[in-house]
Nucleic acid binder design. Structure first.
Length: 373
DNA sequence: GAGTCGTGGTG
DNA sequence: TCACCAAGACT
């Protein structure tokens, strides 16, 4: 584990200055010592880093904003303070705690990874790239981030921030993702032998607060004098990216079924694929083309013989690679329960289920539509 | 290399 | 409103 060195850590100023790298890394670290963001998973200068917290935060932060992750990280750390606690948890509890955060394969891999670390590594995370890469859910970026932040090793963590900063600093105009190798080479050449963990986090802060995707604040940047894109006036145009394919729309009819007690019928999705392992409202298949009529869709209903009512309006939700439009029908089951694969849940208990956001939207539409008008 | 995989914030 | 983006991994 790494103890970070900085002037605030009680080390004499001249000693800290001698410890500071030269050139661009030194400039960035000097800026970081003054402007470093305080984040729930971040360790104070001089504090011993806990690889479990570093790992947990890095998994949550994959393609997810700092603001969104904050409460989830605190909740996970409170419920499962160590990797052994998380390994001993039920997967369904982990999925429930993850609900709303998205990319649910991360939660399944998180749990798998905790079990491997607890059972095969004595509860300690590996401190080598090879060891980390062998763990589920840890790829090139996360392995490097853990090496740098948790173990203070000079690894090159390439994420969207670093790609953007490097493309601007070196004025790389070739579009992503083809330009990844050259951007990585630029980044690797700068990682200092001293304080690589702080340097890595400093680069994240720089990308988040100064070298932002839009309207970079070059005036405040510690690297402004060296930035090639700023000199050329093209900083805001970088990094270039190849055009993305347009998003198709898929549509479906959702069946919100209640029984005589008012309990709502949910079912579990398959382990793999979209929203894998999460709970859902029964729907027709999600397909291109118009929302199927109730007559056409009846064979997909969770129970036969139910009198379905089509609600006005529709629910829209955007996934990474398609738009989703849902019409909602509501119905009342004749008795209590029924349907082998159905889980009957009281409306008050819906929040405690492993329900992805799109399903929350559908349920909200069905349960409050008439009250809201 | 190209798809798949969520969600919320922002200009 | 809408397109883009966020501490990517996996197949």
């Amino acid at each position: 584990m790494a103890v970070r060195l900085s002037p605030k850590a009680g080390i004499k100023a001249d000693q800290a200055a001698a410890d500071q790298p030269d050139g661009l890394p030194g400039l960035l670290l000097g800026w970081y010592d003054q402007h470093r963001r305080v984040l729930p998973w971040r360790f104070a200068p001089g504090e011993v880093a806990d690889p479990y917290r570093v790992w947990l935060s890095e998994i949550m932060l994959q393609q997810t904003t700092v603001a969104t992750v904050g409460p989830y990280f605190q909740n996970f750390l409170g419920r499962w303070p160590t990797v052994k606690d998380l390994a001993a948890a039920d997967l369904d509890d982990v999925l429930r705690a993850w609900a709303g955060l998205g990319y649910y394969a991360r939660a399944r891999n998180l749990h798998k990874c905790a079990i491997v670390v607890a059972s095969q590594h004595g509860g300690r995370f590996p401190d080598t790239e090879e060891g980390l890469l062998s763990l589920p859910g840890i790829g090139a970026y996360t392995a490097a981030a853990i090496l740098a932040i948790a173990f203070d090793k000079p690894a090159t963590a390439m994420d969207g921030n670093v790609e953007r900063v490097m493309s601007r600093l070196r004025a790389v105009t070739d579009p992503l993702p083809a330009s990844k190798p050259i951007l990585r080479a630029h980044a690797a050449a700068l990682v200092p032998a001293r304080r690589p963990g702080d340097y890595t986090q400093a680069l994240f802060d720089l990308g988040a607060t100064i070298c932002a995707p839009r309207k970079p604040r070059c005036i405040l940047c510690p690297w402004t004098a060296a930035c090639e894109a700023r000199k050329q006036g093209i900083a805001e145009d970088l990094p270039a990216k190849t055009a993305k394919a347009p998003k198709p729309t898929r549509r479906a009819l959702a069946f919100v079924l209640s029984d005589v007690r008012g309990l709502v019928a949910l079912r579990r999705r398959p382990e793999k694929g979209l929203l894998g392992g999460m709970m859902e409202v029964p729907t027709t298949p999600w397909e291109a083309g118009p929302v199927p009529s109730l007559a056409t869709a009846r064979s997909h209903a969770p129970l036969p013989g139910v009198d379905w009512t089509l609600l006005p309006g529709s629910v829209r939700h955007t996934f990474t690679h398609f738009e989703f439009e849902i019409r909602v029908v509501v119905g009342r089951a004749a008795g209590a329960g029924g349907g082998a694969d159905l889980l009957w849940v009281a409306p008050d208990a819906l929040e405690a289920q492993a329900l992805p956001t799109v399903m929350i939207k559908i349920l909200r539409h069905a349960l409050y539509q008439r009250a809201d008008g």
